[in-house]
Amino acid sequence: MLELQLLLLFMISAAIIAVEAKDMISSVIALGTVGIGLCLGFLLLKAPDLAITQLVAEILCLIILIRATLKQDLPLVRDGRWFFNTFSTLCFIVIFLIFVFLALKEISVFGNPEMKIAKEILTGSLDKTGATNFITSVILDFRAYDTLGEATILFAAVIGVAAVMRKIGRNKPRA
């Protein structure tokens, strides 16, 4: 519990650096720090599959973001309504956190989840599917429609990137 809180404080400080840093490269690297902290958190919370996936995804995310940020930086501008905008945003976030605090009382206590479906999966999954990794047996057998939807979304994202990045009107004469 204590190590988890320390890890979360580390992630929060890295996130604040990522938001407040002046130049883009250090901001992106601070985001990578948050991701690595998340990977350690997955290991502490007994999710090794997620830790592997998050580690590799974080590296690809850094490569893609660094490729995008090799352009200019923006200076921090303080125009006329800067204080009003920041104040209203902070008020909104404080109200959000108050409602979160009220809502968290209704959720089950940390460490004691209600495992109604999971109990059946954990006891009967080995006979039904034969896989000893229960996450794989859930992801590809009990809830395989999720994976089908994921494949569709990935395909749509590839098509979307190709459509956004294509060159429009290359042969068209300029009006």
């Binding site: 996936t53 590799v56 000893t132 990794n133 992801i139």
Partner: peptide, 18 residues
């Protein structure tokens, strides 16, 4: 080895892409 050890299609696919 996705069905007998940690990993699977998503993690392995990401590593191959990397």
């Amino acid at each position: 080895h996705g069905h007998i050890s940690p990993g699977g299609g998503f993690a392995g696919g990401l590593i191959i892409a990397l």
